[in-house]
Write a protein that binds this DNA or RNA. Structure first.
Lengths: 226, 226
DNA sequence: ATAAATTATTAGTCGTGGCTAATTTATTTA
DNA sequence: TAAATAAATTAGCCACGACTAATAATTTAT
């Protein structure tokens, strides 16, 4: 039998939570609960089931980690999500702030065959509309060497390569100031204490909240902008 | 709250069951059970819920019939299903025998917005890959004046306009003998007692089982073939 | 080292949507 | 008309995946 929507969502969440913290510790059930917006007790129960089915390993008070089988399933869901997003933008006129909601539902409904048909129709894209890499059919995912805009020094000229986890509203705002994938951004100044950044996008100056700037991932090899 | 997958499936089934028998009687719970492949007792319970929610009217031992709201929802599901099927064939290289299974799942996952985007991308098609009419956004559906091939006399030359409810295997067989939407078919002979029909499709002669022939809907205004 | 805070678990409940078995109601048929 | 058959319902069960409330275990801070 194939995994339920709930299981798919749990595995995807665990993957995303263990991704940044490089392997050191397991993912806490509380983190999963908060990410999925459900009660901790519900997570406890589900983790037990995931462990029984071989998707995760679990040690109480230490955390959860994905097994190979769990990681494969998580990556499959991420692939589905990102291919769908890219397809909606490229072929059905969606804007980048409209695709997440739709993909969140569709990823549980599409077959592998359909995902691959979309992926091929698009010419095997490597990235989704937010610049996130699309895992290939075997779950291989491109390692990106990106840094958040906030880590650059004043005066840096960089190219926008990816936007992480922003709400539709924030994405619309970023569009409205002219930002899109590949945009050239000049970092004019950084206010202290993680304050706002002043950035230049195509002749125009904008103040950007620190947390939003931290979601803008740009290429380390600067000066791709001409 | 929006309807669950189960409710959507029930309403679609009831719609399809009450469609041919023009309004006279209600749809029996046993018919619904057999169509959905579930137990009659389960249907009894669900019908109660559907009635509470205003989707159907129900009189025990008489039958179920859709209310206006139930009919709208059913037609919305049928529209989704058929738009998806047409999109898969036209834009993603699916064959007509492969689309039903995929659409059956996707119809519960796509938004109205996505269905309309697909429909517009296709140029507002009026029919799906099997020749079934696609309801418009308001649930209006084109009345077709088609008759099954079995009702024609020997010698009739007709054009294939629609194929009803055939399995993927049967659809593949029909493809393999050269039949597709719009194909010209000459009815050479009909064996008695609902026996097989001999038909000619592009110079080739084939014997066709009566029940399969009865699923081939052709245009009443014959001789569209040249 | 003990108190406080965090983390996790257990027990018991709920809604959804299936199931079987037993029963009731209608309809046929003999 | 009575018996057989068919159709529908009720009662009681199950799995899934959520919930709250109460409890237990582990860290962290004082």
């Amino acid at each position: 039998m194939s995994a339920s929507k709930a299981i798919e969502d749990y595995l995807k969440s665990i993957y995303k939570l263990e991704d940044p913290q490089l392997g050191e510790k397991g993912v806490h059930t509380s983190a999963i609960a908060s990410r999925l917006g459900i009660a901790q007790a519900s997570v406890s129960n589900m983790i037990k089931k995931l462990a029984e089915q071989g998707y995760v390993e679990y040690a109480p008070y230490y955390g959860v980690s994905l097994t190979e089988s769990g990681r494969q399933l998580a990556l499959q869901m991420i692939r589905r999500h990102r291919v769908i997003e890219q397809y909606l933008v490229e072929r059905l006129g969606y804007a980048w702030d409209e695709v997440d909601e739709e993909a969140e539902v569709l990823e549980h409904a599409v077959s592998d065959k359909l995902v691959n048909a979309m992926w091929l129709a698009l010419g095997r894209p490597a990235y989704d509309p937010h610049g996130s890499p699309i895992p290939d059919e075997d779950g291989q995912i491109l390692a990106q060497t990106l840094k958040p805009l906030t880590e650059f020094d004043e005066g840096a000229q960089v190219q926008l390569a990816r936007i992480k986890n922003r709400s539709p509203e924030e994405l619309r705002y970023l569009s409205s100031i002219g930002l899109k994938m590949g945009s050239c951004v000049t970092l004019k100044s950084k206010a202290p204490f993680n304050g706002p950044l002043m950035i230049e996008v195509g002749e125009h100056l904008h103040a950007l909240d620190y947390r939003m700037a931290a979601a803008l991932m740009v290429d380390v090899s600067e000066a791709l902008c001409v």
